[in-house]
Amino acid sequence: MKIPRKQFTASIPTFAMGDIGFLLLIFFVILARAQDDSHIQWRPAQLEDLEAAGVPLANVAIDSGFKTYLNGKEISVENLSARLAAILGDAPAGRRNVFLKVHRTAAAQTFEPVIEAIGEAGGDLVHILEPESEPPSP
């Protein structure tokens, strides 16, 4: 007589799914923040009549220490044009937005070569500014 083997059922522990989903999301959030430039210290210049800036393909910033950054990573002005051109790729005109965030006290000798590099790469330049605060009424 054959003794039937006991059948074991293997079930996936569904209780851990929340933790797995959470960890996966953290992973993707960290990946997404690789392009983030929120750590850069800068104060935007003020101007009136500003518009919504739209969506950028690249962010170029000059911080309060007058260093240049591309998508949050420090870069030399000499390399900026080539790196930007690679990022912009074959994107059609009008969708090649490059946000330029310049600290308000940066000097022309710092920001003009950056503007030139964005032009060379064929980017659509958008100056990121803040609305001019109205003078306090007496």
Partner: peptide, 27 residues
Amino acid sequence: SDIAFILIIFFLVCASVQPETGRAQTL
């Protein structure tokens, strides 16, 4: 897992909706 996912999406959207203003310039 669905609840956690929806909650995180909610907080991410809240954190990232910070419209930037600026001025486009013909290069």
